[in-house]
Simulated scan of single mutants.
Amino acid sequence: MNSLSKIIIVTLLIFLCSPIILATKQIPCDCKEVRTLSLKYPPLQGDDVWELQKQLQKLGFYKHKLNGSYDWQTYVALKKFQYINSKSATGVVKQKTWLKLAKALGKSPFVTVDNKKLNSPQGEISLVVDGYSRQLKVYSNGKLYHTFPVAIGKPSTKSPIGEWAIVHKDADWGGGFGDRWMGLNVPWGKYGIHGTNKPGSIGTAASHGCIRMYNKDVKLLYSWVEVGTRVKIIGNRDPIKLTHQLRPGHTGKDVLLVQERLRKYGFQPGYTDGRFGASTKEAIKNLKYIYGLKDDVVVDENVFYILNLK
Rank of each mutant, 00 (worst) to 15 (best):
G178M: 05
N141H: 07
I193C: 06
K100V: 00
S159W: 00
F177Y: 15
K190V: 00
V186N: 05
P155N: 09
N115L: 10
R180L: 04
S120C: 13
G162W: 01
G200Y: 08
W181M: 10
I161D: 10
S156P: 00
T196C: 09
P155D: 10
R134V: 01
D114P: 01
V186L: 08
V128D: 10
R180V: 03
G178K: 12
G195N: 07
D170M: 09
N141T: 05
I193F: 02
T112E: 13
H208V: 03
G200S: 12
G192Q: 10
F110T: 14
K103N: 12
G153P: 01
V129Q: 14
A205P: 01
P149L: 11
Q135W: 04
N185I: 00
S207T: 04
L136S: 07
Y132L: 13
Y132A: 11
K154L: 01
G131S: 15
R134T: 00
P121F: 03
A165W: 05
L144S: 06
F110N: 13
N115K: 14
S120K: 15
V167Y: 03
Y139F: 14
K190P: 00
W181C: 05
P121D: 07
R212P: 01
Y191V: 04
Q122L: 13
G195S: 11
W173D: 06
G106W: 00
M182L: 13
Y132D: 11
S201H: 09
R180E: 10
A104Y: 00
V138F: 06
G183V: 03
G174T: 04
V150E: 09
T112L: 12
P160E: 12
H208T: 07
Y139A: 09
Y191P: 01
G189C: 03
K117M: 11
L101P: 00
H146K: 14
K137N: 12
A102K: 07
K198Y: 08
S120W: 07
K107I: 01
I202M: 09
F148I: 05
V167K: 13
P109K: 14
P121V: 02
A206I: 01
S108E: 11
N185K: 15
H146S: 14
I211G: 06
